[in-house]
């Protein structure tokens, strides 16, 4: 059997797909990019630019297509999908890398204990109703104790014991606790503890109240061990600073002056009249406005004694 003719035919077929260049083309399949680093042929460039460019592009794209068609393929309803490798050529990012989220107290505890995360369904199976119901929210399962028609009451309960109310209170407390823990997690993540900021707040309030009497706290009774109230110490810049710092400070000042013309009183401001017409009208009309004033004066002139209450 002579296979040479078949081989020849196959070779001819391959010929139409093969591209031969001095330096092999670099393909970056991740970006669908092909780079041809062979020097440009000046003759064909000058002869017919468009044809030259099209031929150049065709050769490059043929190599790229050959590379893409040889990638591992998965089937999909839209046709074959080629799995692209990661791109080699690196482009700068548009935004910095995302910062990792700080773990919550529970997450760090779970990590230390090796507890794996488990997602809980939003719905729960209700045996009585034979259907899936919300765990919380509208018709939530967590409100079952409040809504059932019959509730056991403990023996030693008070006369006004309301089981529905108690269940509701418990549920609300759970929510409040969760919210508190959430806020504490946020505070921990931001680096300031809730207690220290609260202490500062109390200190500030105390300082304000101590100077809030008529004598600014001079004749108040002092508690034992109470510290003297300290004011803010004024601080001055040293008279000699490095020229670089001085220049920076001055430039800063100039920049700030540029920013707000009104604050810097650059343009002569429109003269404000001594009489504030709006306020005058308001006061004269007893807050009823200029229209009321005009109406009242017109009526007064025509009728003399006003028909008070006859509007």
């Amino acid at each position: 059997m002579d296979v040479s003719s078949i081989l020849e035919a196959q070779k001819a077929k391959l010929q139409s797909v093969l591209v031969e260049k001095e330096t092999p083309l670099e393909v970056d399949a991740g970006h669908l990019m092909v780079c041809d680093i062979n020097p440009i042929d000046e003759e064909s460039y000058n002869e017919n630019l468009e044809d030259h460019l099209q031929n150049l592009a065709r050769d490059g794209i043929q190599v790229l297509i050959g590379n893409l068609f040889s990638l591992p393929i998965t089937k999909s309803p839209d046709g074959p999908l080629a799995q692209l490798p990661t791109s080699v050529y690196q482009l700068p990012r548009a935004k910095p890398l995302p910062k990792p989220k700080p773990p919550t107290k529970w997450e760090s505890f779970a990590a230390a204990k090796g507890i794996s995360h488990r997602t809980r369904d939003r719905k729960e199976w209700d045996e009585e109703r034979q259907e899936w119901v919300n765990r919380w929210g509208k018709d939530g399962r967590n409100k079952q104790a409040e809504e059932q028609w019959l509730t056991p009451v403990p023996h030693n309960a008070d006369a006004d014991y309301n089981p529905q109310l108690v269940a509701r209170k418990e549920r609300k407390e759970r929510t409040a606790k969760n919210e508190k823990q959430r806020l504490a997690n946020i505070a921990r993540a931001s680096g300031t503890s809730a207690s220290s900021s609260r202490k500062d707040e109390i200190d500030r309030t105390l300082a304000t109240t101590r100077t809030s009497t008529a004598s600014l706290g001079r004749f108040d009774k002092k508690l034992e061990g109470e510290k003297k109230l300290r004011g803010v110490k004024r601080k001055f810049e040293p008279t000699e600073i490095s020229t670089a710092n001085e220049q920076k400070a001055n430039l800063n000042l100039i920049a700030r002056m540029d920013s707000d013309a009104r604050k810097m009183r650059k343009d002569p401001r429109a003269e404000e009249p001594v009489l504030n017409a709006r306020k005058a009208i308001r006061s004269a009309s007893k807050g009823k406005g200029s229209a009321a004033l005009a109406g009242a004066s017109g009526r007064n002139s025509s009728k003399g004694k006003g028909g008070k209450g006859r509007r």
């Binding site: 669908l32 460019l53 893409l68 068609f69 999909s76 046709g79 080629a82 799995q83």
Partner: peptide
């Protein structure tokens, strides 16, 4: 993208 449809390779931008 991590995968591309081979039928969707529609156009080429050539920079030379």
């Amino acid at each position: 993208v991590d995968s591309i449809s081979l039928l969707g390779l529609e156009h080429v931008i050539s920079i030379s």
